[in-house]
Nucleic acid binder design. Sequence first.
DNA 1: AGCACGCCGACT
DNA 2: GTCGGCGTGCTC
Length: 807
Amino acid sequence: MAQIAKIAIENAVYAIDKPYDYLVPEDMTVCAGMRVTVPFGRGNRRSEGMVLSVQEGAMDRPLKAVETVLDREAQLSAEQIRLALWMCQRYFCTFYDALHAILPIGLWYQHKELWHLKREPEGELPEKEQVLVSLLREKDRELSQLLEAQPKAKAMLQKLEQQGIVSCARASNRRVSDKTDWRVAFAITSQEAEELTRDKMRRAPRQGAALSFLLKNGETSLHDLIYYTGVQRKWVMKMGEEGVFSLCEQEIFRVPLRPAQEKAPQIQLNDEQQAAYNDILAQIHSGKPGVTLLQGVTGSGKTEVYITLAQKLLQEGRTAMILVPEIALTPQMMQRFSLYFGEDVALLHSGLGIAQRYDQYKRIRQGLVKIVLGTRSAVFAPIDNLGMIVLDEEQEGSYESEKSPCYHARDIAKYRCAKEGAWLVLGSATPTVETAYHAREGNYRLTLLRRRFNQNALPGVSLVDMRQELRQGNYTSISHPLYEEIQKNLELGQQTILFLNRRGNSRQVICPGCGYVPQCPRCSVSLTYHSANRRMMCHYCGYSERFEADCPQCGEAFRPVGSGTQRVEQELQELFPGVPILRMDADSVGVQHEKMLQKFDKEKIPILLGTQMVAKGLDFDNVTLVGVLAADQSLYVDNYRAAERTFVLLTQVVGRAGRGDKPGRALIQTYTPENEVLRDAARQDYESFYRREIGLRHMRREPPFTDVTVLTVSGSNEEFVRRSCMQLRDGLCAAMMQPEYRDMGLEVLGPAPAPVVKVNGRFRYRITVVGRCSGPVRRLLAAFMKDFAQRSENRNMSIFAEYNRMN
DNA sequence: AGCACGCCGACT
DNA sequence: GTCGGCGTGCTC
């Protein structure tokens, strides 16, 4: 009998990712959740691994042994191991891919191989080995350096190591270390301490100062003692050894802690909020997992419900997690939560450095945190005793990771709630059609907040027919009705937001002479202009080239196309001469973006013109008019979510008007004013939108009535990729004719080129499987992918799968 | 993926 | 005869 560990291997790709058995040496202690290093593969290359379980078992075949243990304690709980295994199935990813999503970056090791020359070789070496030896003669070198000089260095080094000429030191270092400090206190009686202080004061003033500081303040951190007295660290440690001080090591968290100094105001819920609170609390108390959709218009006070629920859970000794989308909107929320929960809340937002993030993680794991407030990745916070998870603005796209594994925070939250007996609250004014469906079918509970908290009416919204404008000879992007309204606002000294419905985060250029648009040589997309470095850049592969003002083909000067905000700005300047306009687009993103919004608010600039980035964000009291310039833009794209996106976007942007005490109004300009989605958005009628949309989804076999699974094959030879795809499709079709799949209503579509066919010189084609992606179907697809990867004709091609992606 | 093994052609 | 080219198959 021997100890056998099941281990997930870091270096294993999807096709070979599974638990591998390793022997645990007699003198080694490991348990599930610890990381180890193991030899892996024919060349026994050293890889990191995660121990999934350890069992006593008979060695019925030769096993390799675990090399080193990297962790002193388990970094993953049994619960987290289960979650990672589930993610592997749900997102068709490797175990380590899942781990990278679950654990903070600060926890990961960087593995290094440092090679050293032990002795001079006797006799002649082959020329290439000689090169390595002379490199090592200068100094010890890292493997990566040696590989640069000699591509086949690995085999040579192994040979030289066997001959005893070189040796290798392997080190595994963490990105972030655990920060500790010492607590210093007297280990002697106070009389002795006073005596010693008087004695030292005369001979060694700094040491005396330190002693009297300790006398006055009692137990102190070493950091503070040094800071306030200038005493030497070495001396304090010496005093510790001599038994004058007692020293004990203490973990330091590099997290800005905000104790709740002010008394947070008591929240008074209105009757609607109270009803929502009561219902959700009753569900939490039932102990059964489940979901509530808290559907309330903006300003109906969902946050108050979250806070009071969290307060209640805190009282009951349970914990809560509140997730918010990755937008600039969160600072207010974070302020409120630290006001109410002080040190009990851990804030996990994108502004944290890796050390801070890691320390928050540790605080949570140690049970020092009762409430977690954060963005997408916070859903993995290792918090125990969870009573509730809230996903605010459930429909937001930022809840889905764009890196593999492309997990959706809602899925993970649902999984955790189910396993941990917690309740999931989805908050939204305009929920996704799937969520609304589940709520209306009774799979989720539905709670409505109809009233706006400050009793403000929703803005009055009307549609403007732009065809009419064309007939009247108005070819600008500002219609007559919108012009009138802007004029009115200017006279009243109130502000206007104009919204151009384009994905305007980039600027393209075109040659007006020959129509030439600079393209990325590696991808099938056009390059975009960046004013900061005056370069043309590719957003897919990072390629860039210097911007030439003139077209290389015909010599005419390039002109910007892009989002068109410049053109609209020009038109506005002609229509309203002398009126200041703030334009927000590609040139103003990131930090600038927030500053500009502040400027707009503070300086009361009359008109703000921008693309999608102005739809979200802060509330402005003085904005009473919103104009949507091209509502149709996001509506007619080939995506089953287009209608939903447009509705959500328009509702959001229209809601920007009339946030203060003045009533707001909005105009939506469109070439298709008869379009029902636009009419619903104008009426702010979610129910009507939902009823029509769910009917269409049912008819067209789209989520929530089915799952859409996309398999993507990529490779540098377009013809090979297409052929492999076709083979794969035929295989899948044949498999789906088998009796166990025949009645599942599965459909295989494609292959079709991906929306951007070529990225980084690789062509991408997709096969779509429509139909419930149940366990057996997932296993079938996984088997197909593994088979695909192992076929030699697919050598230079890769494949991945994802299902029900939102974005 | 990454690495060894193995089987063929260009050199000492 | 041997060095090194790439095709093939496995990873506890």
